[in-house]
């Protein structure tokens, strides 16, 4: 039997039980997962291992709005390693009020396939 070595420990956050799932690699380079107690846990571990993604929630500058910032988010999870680049891109932007919740503020940001959308309405400051 082939010796398996643990290459990553993933703490499952699907539910508060918090299973520790181990990603193990054998001699054939095939990765297997151990320690999950449900299917959702396995899916989570696989996603975290191969392509960890996060929803990004931040703010964007707004001119002439009731507030100087509008909260925004990515409309789908994006690669974790790209978060920083996306944050810089958003920080450079400055838009004008009024804005409606769900408005696409940046389309397909950095070609990642996700849009930056507004998290709320923001009226113009009169």
């Amino acid at each position: 039997m082939l010796e398996l070595s643990t290459i990553k420990i993933i703490r499952c956050i699907v539910c508060p039980t918090g299973c520790e799932i181990k990603a193990k690699k054998g001699a054939n380079e095939k990765v297997t997962f151990e320690g999950y107690t449900c299917e959702r846990g396995l899916e989570y571990a696989q996603q975290e291992f191969y392509e960890p993604k996060r929803i990004l929630t931040t703010t964007m500058r707004i001119e002439n709005g009731l507030l100087p910032l509008i909260p925004v988010r990515t409309d789908k999870a994006i690669l974790k390693e790209k978060l920083k680049d996306v944050l810089v891109e958003i920080a450079k932007m400055k838009l004008k009020a009024p804005i409606k919740m769900g408005d696409i503020l940046i389309e397909n940001i950095l070609g990642l396939g996700a849009n930056i959308i507004a998290s709320r309405d923001l009226i113009k400051l009169d």
Binding site: I55, P71, R73, M101, S119, R120, D121
Partner: peptide, 13 residues
């Protein structure tokens, strides 16, 4: 569905 705080409260507003 998973929302941000402002999105959640906007629905009630």
């Amino acid at each position: 569905e998973e929302l941000t705080g402002p999105e959640y409260i906007q629905r009630f507003i």
